[in-house]
C-alpha cells in the first residue's frame, strides 16, 4: 500500500485526479439544501445555553455536598492544628490522666490525711519512686487520699486527691527521647484540656507534675506562682 502510494504520489495522473476530485467536491458543496432541512444545520443554538453563574453553581447539589465536605475536613484539620499548637512533650499523657481524673472516685484511693508535699517520702519509701515531689505551689494542700498505679504503658503514676477545690495531682515520668533516652524537658507550666477538665503541668528532675481541676485555666492560675506561658 505504502509502495503504491509513494509510486503514484508525484505522478501527473494522480495530481490530475486530485484536482478533479477537489473540483467535484467544491461543486457538491454548492448543491442547494432545502430551507427546512438547512434550519437543522443552523449555527444558531436552538436551545440557548444557560448562563453560568456562581449563584447557580452553588445551588448545584453536587457542588454543595462537596463544599460542605471540604468545609468539615478543613474544620477538623484546623481544630487538630489548634489543639496541637500548644502541645509539649508530656501533653498526650497529661490528657489521658485528665480522663483518669474525671473517672476517679474517692474510694479508689488510700485515705491519707497529710500535706501534699510530705507524700514524696511515702512514694519513695513505699514505692521506690524518686523525685515524685509535689511543687512548692501545691505542697501545703491537705490530702484526702493517694494511690500509685500503672498506666497502659506500664509507667508508674502517683495520684493525690486534695481537699482544695477537689483538685487532683498526678506525678508521672517525663517523656524521653526514643533514641538518646534523654528527658524531653519543657520550661514553666503548661496547660492541657480534656472533657471539661484543665491540667497545669510542669517538669522537674525527669518527673512531671500535673494539677488537675474541673474547670478552666483561670481556676488554676491563682495557684501557680509564675505567669502562664
Amino acid at each position: 500500500m505504502r509502495a503504491a502510494i509513494s509510486r503514484v504520489d508525484g505522478s501527473a495522473d494522480f495530481i490530475s485526479q486530485q484536482n478533479f476530485d477537489r473540483a467535484v467536491a467544491h461543486v457538491v458543496r454548492l448543491i442547494p439544501i432545502p430551507a427546512e432541512s438547512a434550519e437543522w444545520f443552523s449555527e444558531k443554538d436552538l436551545v440557548p445555553a444557560s448562563r453560568w453563574t456562581w449563584k447557580k453553581m452553588m445551588r448545584n447539589p453536587a457542588v454543595l455536598a462537596i463544599s460542605i465536605a471540604v468545609a468539615v475536613i478543613a474544620g477538623v484539620f484546623v481544630s487538630n492544628f489548634l489543639s496541637h499548637l500548644n502541645d509539649f512533650p508530656a501533653s498526650a499523657t497529661a490528657r489521658k490522666l485528665l480522663g483518669t481524673a474525671a473517672s476517679t472516685r474517692p474510694v479508689m484511693l488510700d485515705p491519707v490525711n497529710a500535706e501534699a508535699g510530705t507524700l514524696s517520702d511515702l512514694f519513695f519509701m513505699k514505692y521506690g519512686l524518686e523525685h515524685y515531689d509535689v511543687p512548692a505551689e501545691f505542697a501545703d494542700f491537705g490530702t484526702i487520699g493517694c494511690r500509685v498505679f500503672e498506666d497502659d504503658e506500664s509507667r508508674r503514676i502517683a495520684q493525690i486527691w486534695v481537699a482544695e477545690k477537689r483538685m487532683q495531682f498526678f506525678l508521672f515520668p517525663a517523656e524521653r527521647n526514643s533514641k538518646t533516652g534523654a528527658v524531653m524537658r519543657f520550661p514553666d507550666w503548661r496547660y492541657v484540656h480534656q472533657e471539661g477538665w484543665t491540667g497545669a503541668v510542669t517538669e522537674h528532675s525527669g518527673v512531671c507534675f500535673m494539677a488537675a481541676i474541673r474547670g478552666r485555666d483561670k481556676d488554676l492560675e491563682p495557684y501557680i506562682a509564675r505567669p502562664k506561658k
Partner: peptide, 22 residues
Amino acid sequence: DLCAAAASQIEQLDPVQLAIWI
C-alpha cells in the same frame, strides 16, 4: 480518461445537475 481541463469543465457545471447525475 481524466483530462487536464476537467477542473474548468466542472466549474461550469450546475450543482443541481451534478446532484442529479450522481
